[in-house]
Amino acid sequence: MEIEIYLDPVNIDFDSNPDKNAPQCFGDKIVVYREKNKFPDLSEINLAILGVKEDRNALLNKGCAEGPDHIRKYFYELYPGNYNNKIADIGNIIPGNTVDDTYFAVSTVIAKLIKYKITPIILGGSQDISYANYLAYEQLGQIINIAAVDAAFDVGYQSTDITAKSYLSKIIMHQPSCLFNFTNIGFQTYLVDQKAINLMSNLLFDTYRLGSIRENIEEAEPYIRNVDMVSFDVGAIRMSDAPGNAYALPNGFYGEEACQIARYAGISDKLTSIGFYDYNPLFDNRFQTAALIAQIIWYFIDGYYNRKNDFPHIQKDDYLKYRVSVNDNTREIVFYKSKKSDRWWMEVPCPTDISKNYLRHYLVPCSYKDYLSALKEEMPDRWWQIFQKLM
């Protein structure tokens, strides 16, 4: 695959704690790149752990470059679920002379992995690595949706330089653009200025407050099911559960809610990369956050190995089809319900000249709640937002 030139082997003392590498634990069951010039064969692999020890653009969170190996130590001691895992830990990106060099290496490695149907699990490092993740899809020529689990929008107005707090602006402004939609999950209103909220609205991006998601965590599933890439800021988890971050906050998701969100990401047939960022061991009391992130990754993997492969364009005979008239019968919404998973999608009209390019976007994940809204002749917000984008 020719990616090993960008990678250093995992440098962890595997013998320092025998319990962490016990038989049947992940540390014993996955393929690990441990020695230079002995890069593992990835031909049978479908998930790859990739560390990125980069924090030069981390602003006040310097030290997060040391996060990947701490997370690994706790991940390796976990037991896999009841599935035949084909996971490799391919080591850490070799830091470049400049941050841009690191971005190039990250995007190249991720693009190669995705091309060969391997989903990378990225361990940061600072969250600006999300920009490099995005560039991988540009290399692949793929129009994508991104979700960020984050307490803020990270658009940044003070500088044109990319940082962990402004990477999203870099993605939005990048040309040629391969971004179709962006979704923020869990923002806290008092941390976001009105200018940023207006920007998200004007761009027809989806933003969901922490309170609304926590009130009904199941509603996060359709939002995540619609994305190709997830950027998970550890700072979105409350300080009591995840103190290992310079920006840790008193409010945020509980650890078990973060695990649930990660599992939703895992079961999404569409998602092809996920990254966990801004974990800083310098602030981590008894490495509680490292242990939590390891468990969050466990839930992502568990979701991945329970995918249903039921995206509607595959075989529509496997779905129940519902037609609902709204707006006094002037418009019809077509819903699909999977017989495999009971998950819902709705079809958004798309101009025929672009329908082929946007097939993955005009079949929109939704919930039973959206179907009930349509029955009341209420146009679902998700439907309307995508309709405006496609028109």
Rank of each mutant, 00 (worst) to 15 (best):
I3G: 11
E4T: 10
L7I: 14
D19M: 14
F26Y: 11
Y33Q: 07
E35Q: 15
P40N: 00
D41G: 06
G51C: 09
R56S: 08
L60N: 13
E66F: 13
F75E: 04
E77Y: 09
Y83R: 11
N85T: 07
D89I: 07
I90L: 03
I94Q: 03
P95R: 11
T108H: 10
A111L: 09
T119L: 13
L123V: 07
G125F: 06
I129A: 02
S130N: 05
A132Y: 05
L135C: 14
A136H: 13
Y137D: 01
Y137R: 04
N145A: 09
A152H: 13
G156H: 11
Y157H: 12
T160W: 00
T160D: 07
S169C: 02
I171T: 15
M173T: 14
L179G: 07
Y190W: 04
D193R: 02
D193Q: 09
K195A: 12
K195H: 11
M200C: 15
D206K: 11
G211T: 12
G211E: 15
M229T: 08
V230M: 15
D233N: 12
V234S: 08
R238V: 07
A246R: 08
E256S: 14
D269A: 06
I274E: 02
Y279S: 08
N280Q: 13
L282R: 14
I297D: 00
K308S: 12
Q315P: 02
K316S: 14
K316W: 04
D318Y: 06
L320H: 14
T330Y: 09
R331I: 05
Y336K: 11
K337T: 03
K337F: 00
K339R: 15
C350L: 05
S355E: 14
Y358K: 03
R360G: 08
Y362L: 03
L372N: 06
L375G: 06
E377S: 14
E378P: 12
P380H: 08
P380R: 04
Q385P: 03
F387P: 00
